[in-house]
């Protein structure tokens, strides 16, 4: 429960960063999608129930701050979570490179899901907008995932030394000091 709340607060912080910090720090139209990276990580580490609920809550948060179709991010992030979750059942989750690969694949899946579900609403040519930015978006997301995984073990050791994040601990060998 504590961990779930922690993930939710982290997601909320990411939403704030994406809405308020990125516009000042990154003068680009394409910016890293930290929430999506977090959901991919949840797909690798959390159970179907906890992770699914978290993905939905994070999507709901994002719906309040992004796009014009309430519920779109909620449904797409839940589907993304389960796609990753079912895929990881057949993959070696201890591989550190898997996270980066999953973030890349996750970005493409997420974009596809957004186009699909936005087409149910009057979303206009959103696919055109997504196609234009999908390559830099994927690269930016993969870079942010690499950076987050590099920083997370250090931050965790300093801020919450007794926290238990098994997946991160496994990856710590590859990314952390």
């Amino acid at each position: 429960m504590k961990r779930t709340l922690g993930y939710f607060l982290l997601g909320f912080l990411f939403v704030l960063i994406q809405t308020s910090l990125w516009p000042h720090l990154l003068p680009l139209t394409t910016r890293p999608d930290l929430i999506m990276v977090l959901v991919v990580y949840l797909g690798l580490s959390e159970s179907h129930l906890h992770g699914g609920i978290l993905a939905f809550l994070l999507g709901a948060c994002l719906d309040a701050m992004a796009g014009s179709h309430p519920g779109l991010h909620g449904v797409t992030l839940v589907l993304l979570f389960y796609s990753i979750r079912f895929a990881t059942d057949h993959l070696n989750t201890e591989s550190s490179r898997l996270v980066l690969l999953m973030v890349g694949v996750g970005t493409l899946t997420y974009a596809g899901l957004q186009v699909l579900f936005a087409s149910f609403a009057d979303a206009g040519a959103i696919w055109l907008q997504i196609i234009r930015v999908i390559v830099p978006q994927t690269l930016l997301n993969m870079f942010s995932a690499w950076l987050l995984l590099k920083l997370a073990p250090h931050l965790l050791r300093r801020l919450a030394p007794r926290s238990d994040l098994p997946t991160l601990r496994r990856m710590d060998k590859h990314y952390g000091a």
């Binding site: 929430i35 701050m65 796009g67 959103i126 930015v133």
Partner: peptide
């Protein structure tokens, strides 16, 4: 005071 959280939408 803030911009859209996603790169794909404009709000």
């Amino acid at each position: 005071v803030a911009e859209d959280a996603s790169s794909w939408f404009r709000t």
